[in-house]
Nucleic acid binder design. Structure first.
Lengths: 223, 223
DNA sequence: ATGGGGTACCGTCACGCTGACGAGAACATC
DNA sequence: GATGTTCTCGTCAGCGTGACGGTACCCCAT
C-alpha cells in the first residue's frame, strides 16, 4: 500500500421541484474552510461503510427523509489535488431526487432549498458537482420514468408535466404529453380517484408504475 | 480531517473490437492479492495527480498508446469495505475505447486482449467494473458518435457497422445504417478515397466528424 | 472476354411515433 | 346559466425508421 492516502467524502445533490422551480438543498458552512459560504450537504465516509450507505446516511441526517423511498444514485468522483485546502480529499458526488417536502429541511440549521437558477457560488468545487447533477437529471428524464420521483405518492399528469417544465425549462403540450405517459406501459398506475385542484376539471390520480425506462425516449425540444 | 483514510486507485476498462468481437485488455496479476488471476489494468493515484491524469498515465504505460487521441471517461467509484484484503481501497473505474491495435499490448508481460464474452472471473470486484463499462459503451453507441472511437483514423461504413455488431450483438441493416450515419450532420467526413478490401466493391473512406451526439438516437432492436 | 460472387449504394414503401391543433367533458366561480 | 379553467378524447400531416428490390462496382474463375 502506498503512503499517499486520501480522505473520502460523499456529497449530495438533492433536487426537488418547488413552485415550478428546480431547487437544490444547500447548507451554510460553519466550519473552517469556506465558512459562511453555501455548500452541498455531505460528509466523510466511515470505516466499514460503502459509498451508497454513506450517502444514504447523510441524506437522512441532513434532510430527515425516510430511507429507501427516494431515488439515490452515484454521480461521479472529484479529486483535483487542490480542491480542498485541508489536504487530499476525494469526494464522490451523489444525486438524490425527492418530492416537494412539507418542511424545507428538518436537519441542521442553515439548511434550505435554493432555486438552481439562482445559485451563483458554492464552496469547494461544489458548483461543478451541482452542474453535473442537474445535467444528469435533465438527461435521465428523457429516457427513464424518473420524473415521478419528484412527485408525491399520488399525483396527476399535470403535476408530472410541471416537473418536466421545471427541469427542462420547456413546457410540453398537455395532450401529447398525456398520450405519451399513459401509453407507456408500466409508467403510471391509476388509483381511480381524482384530485380537485380548485380550478378546472379534476385530474385523474396516478401512482408510480414498475417501468423504469422510456422506449422510445421523450426528447426535449431544444438541444 | 478524519483518521480513516483510503488508498485511491484508478482501474481501466480498455475496450476494442478485434475480428468482430468486443475485447477487453486484461493483465495477469503477479503481486500478492489475487496473484495469477486476471485483472483490469490500473494503479494508485499519485500525490498532486488528478483522476483523469492518473488514468491517462496508466493507459499509456500499460498499453503504449499515444495520449489524447483516444476516448477516456470516468465510469464510477467502487469502495466496498472488503473489496481489497489489504485494506481500505477506493478505486475509480474508467472506460477507454481504442481502435484495433497492430500490437496487442506493448506494456508489461501478461497483458493481452480477451473477448468480453469469454471473461469468466477477475480479481477484486473487477468483474462488476467490467460489466459497468461494457454497459456504458453499449448505451453510448445509441446516442453518441462514439462508435468511431473503435475505428482507425480512416474507415468505411461497413467497419463502423461491424463495431455496432460486435458491441450490441445485433447486425443493423446495411442500407438503413448507411442512411442513418451519412444523414447525421458532422458524424462522418468523406476523404474522397476508397478502400479496396479485396472482396466486393470498394467502400468510401471516412474520417471522424465534429459531431458527438446522435439526434434522434440509434436504438438497438432488443432490450 | 464473359460470367458469377460479393459488397457498396440508390430508391421505394408502409408503419409508428410525434408535433400541432380541434373539440368536448367536468369542475369552479360569478 | 354564462364564463373561464383544466382534463381528456380525437384528427391529421410530417419525420424517421424497418424492410426490401434493384443497380453499380470490384475481384476472380472460366
Amino acid at each position: 500500500m502506498r503512503g499517499n492516502l486520501f480522505a473520502v467524502a460523499v456529497d449530495l445533490v438533492v433536487l426537488t421541484v418547488r413552485d415550478g422551480e428546480l431547487c437544490v438543498l444547500l447548507l451554510e458552512r460553519t466550519a473552517k474552510p469556506f465558512a459562511g459560504e453555501a455548500a452541498l450537504p455531505g460528509g466523510f465516509v466511515r470505516p466499514a461503510e460503502d459509498l451508497l450507505d454513506a450517502a444514504t446516511r447523510e441524506l437522512v441526517t441532513e434532510t430527515g427523509l425516510e430511507i429507501g423511498t427516494h431515488h439515490l444514485e452515484q454521480l461521479a468522483s472529484y479529486a483535483a489535488p487542490d480542491r480542498d485546502p485541508r489536504g487530499r480529499v476525494l469526494t464522490v458526488g451523489h444525486l438524490a431526487l425527492v418530492p416537494d417536502l412539507p418542511e424545507p429541511a428538518a436537519g441542521g440549521a442553515g439548511c434550505a432549498w435554493h432555486p438552481v437558477a439562482k445559485v451563483d457560488q458554492l464552496a469547494f468545487d461544489h458548483a461543478a458537482i451541482l452542474a453535473d447533477g442537474v445535467e444528469r437529471a435533465r438527461a435521465k428524464l428523457e429516457y427513464t420514468t424518473l420524473a415521478a420521483a419528484f412527485c408525491p405518492e399520488e399525483f396527476t399528469i399535470s403535476q408530472l408535466r410541471r416537473v418536466y417544465e421545471a427541469v427542462w425549462g420547456t413546457l410540453p403540450d398537455p395532450r401529447n404529453f398525456s398520450r405519451k405517459v399513459t401509453t407507456t406501459p408500466g409508467f403510471l398506475v391509476p388509483t381511480g380517484e381524482r384530485l380537485n385542484a380548485g380550478r378546472g376539471r379534476p385530474g385523474q390520480l396516478f401512482r408510480r408504475g414498475p417501468a423504469t425506462s422510456l422506449h422510445p425516449p421523450m426528447l426535449r425540444g431544444d438541444e
